[in-house]
Amino acid sequence: MENILVNSLTTTLQNLSGMIAHFLPRLIAMIAIIVIGGIIAWILKVIVRRFLWFVKFNQICEATGFTQMLAKAALPSPTELLSRLVFWVVWVSFLLFGFNALEIAPLQEEISRFFLFLPQIFVAIVILFVGVLAANFFGRATLLTAVNTNWPSPRLLSSIVRFLIITLAVTMALERIGLGRGVVEIAFSIAFGAVMLGLALAFGLGGRDVARKLLERHFLENEEKEDDQDGGISHL
């Protein structure tokens, strides 16, 4: 009895020590990976920040109105944001690598699935982000153009443009992740929306001036019949 107990204890201890002896290096390896990953991520972050500073990324974003939007959401400057993003993505990846080194089968499976999925999420985030930006920009452009050309209900028009662009962005993002796949109807309507958006974009961006002139002429002609818009005055 005593022997059995001793034996089993010994075996258990042996097993345990064996397991520990087996597991410890992996743990150390994991920690090492995580630490080194952290350092690499930090270096990358510095490099990216320097690079973006060098190419005057902040100024570029300022011109597009991106910075102002970030500021409104109490987020740091675009350069800072992007470099931090790089840091976290790299470090999380190393973290996962580290866990992987533990060679725990179910965990490994999840991790590999995560790695397969990661780029998709990343792309989806970017799409969403750009979509929101574009929606804001074109929504405002539409609003201003409509007001300056005396188009009826400018805000409604602006909201439609904004909504269409965001819808498109969301669907595209979802599709990236693979959630919207089965829904053909949605895809179809989205495609239709995209066409509409394309037109809106064409009007709003490519042919902005043409569109405005067309509109202006249209309205001016109509109004001239009753009265000139600005009369005969010249501003310059």
């Binding site: 007001v147 005396n150 109004e223 009265d227 000139d228 818009q229 600005d230 009369g231 005969g232 005055i233």
Partner: peptide
């Protein structure tokens, strides 16, 4: 010059 002020005001 002939001017349509009302329209401007509305805009």
């Amino acid at each position: 010059l002939r001017v349509n002020r009302k329209k401007m005001c509305d805009m």
